[in-house]
Design a binder for these strands. Sequence first.
DNA 1: AAGTGGTCTAGACCACTTG
DNA 2: AAGTGGTCTAGACCACTTG
Lengths: 258, 258
Amino acid sequence: MAEERGNQAEGSEQPYRRIAADLRTAIEQGEYRPGHQLPSGSALMKRYDVARQTVQNAIDLLRVEGWVVSRPGAGVFVRDRPVVQRLSRNRLSRETRQAGRGAFLADAEASGFTPAVEVVVRFEPAGERIADALDIEAGDEVTVRQRIMSADGQPVQLAVSRLPRSITAGTAIEQDNPGPTGIYGVLDEAGHTLDHFVESVSTRPATQQELTALRLAPGTPVLAVTRVAYDSTGRPVEINDMVLVGDRYELVYEFAAT
Amino acid sequence: MAEERGNQAEGSEQPYRRIAADLRTAIEQGEYRPGHQLPSGSALMKRYDVARQTVQNAIDLLRVEGWVVSRPGAGVFVRDRPVVQRLSRNRLSRETRQAGRGAFLADAEASGFTPAVEVVVRFEPAGERIADALDIEAGDEVTVRQRIMSADGQPVQLAVSRLPRSITAGTAIEQDNPGPTGIYGVLDEAGHTLDHFVESVSTRPATQQELTALRLAPGTPVLAVTRVAYDSTGRPVEINDMVLVGDRYELVYEFAAT
DNA sequence: AAGTGGTCTAGACCACTTG
DNA sequence: AAGTGGTCTAGACCACTTG
């Protein structure tokens, strides 16, 4: 049937934890290098004299810890640490904007990868959170610019930007392509010169939708960044909800010790 | 033996994914509320006519997605969304510092929980990363202040602060308690008036050590924040590596659109 | 064709919590 | 004492990748 030694549930350390610890140590010490393959499930079953599920549990643990990725049919591989993008937020300056490039495209060029951006524009009534942030009434119409940014074909960032339609009406912001100065340039021309930004940064596991859109494994952490832009009258003109793949980004903020 | 219907590996959707999706939907729709218990493993086995392991796989998925927590022996519970701390970074002003409170204690008071801080001070030679950041030679001695911050008994933050020993020698920074003005106050008195900070924010799954120190489940994302403090001569005087439990913190930065 | 990771079944046992 | 989540075994089959 299905025992022979039953199990122990917690003698000293569970078998799967010990196997994971062994592999983790081997990776840390460079025995298995980034991109290289771990021993196969069958090999590990023999080496440790355990059942398939026990090996699987060990691999699952290493996966949520971010050490390995699985390619079914091929093997389990030590994760290639992707190139991290350092995003200097304070550099979101008017000069850069007027130079006429979206921040993402500019960063892409600097980092040497091929960028792509998909845009969808739509209109919707503001929900409570959006209305609060933009200082409008819930139900007021907002322009929604939804973007997926890719680097070398791999989606790395989602951004949903919302602006009061009372501001965007009749401007290129309501088109897929807002023109060479980007939406901040258009806002500037429309008399809404930007004054400052407030960004909130948090982290959480990616949702189902984000996993699909960004082609990630369950449990991958994302950075959730919400940026509100204020014009020189102190009026909030945009709220941008961004989701960044955790291991691809580092955000850098510089601020005075007043 | 062990088949009877074999399985299908991918007919349309794996059983465990379907079970997880059902439970996720039920949680989203408020059928199971935060803090409340999900149906037991046995109940789910009967309801879906599946093996124990299949139910376990579904629960494991919901756990890495952050929907539930398990308490072995008791049950699986919808996660209580903890109170999120909004940390306004730019408020790390000299006035606050001179008012004589660590940022953590001040935040704790504002949020109404009971704070506790454990400190260990030690000395070590600077590694390459630290030497680079502090503009000293690798091997030069640094003062290390290692802290664990707790809120209502639950550890929520780790911080390892390193300063050149050439700066801290003979000051209270080398003691567990640096006095009422905190280490920034002591630096000020020692002629190193702070000018600005640079913070890098990234996210990743917690490491083994962090899981233990912060009492977290595997795969929980953390915010890794590295802050470098510069004095008025432009000299870096401190590098502080902080690890914040992901779902407890939100970092807020405000900056000018220059 | 051979090998791989992933999923599944049926059954077992453990430490733990709950009433 | 009864119930719970977690882990384990032994064996099966699947879709997929690799040479």
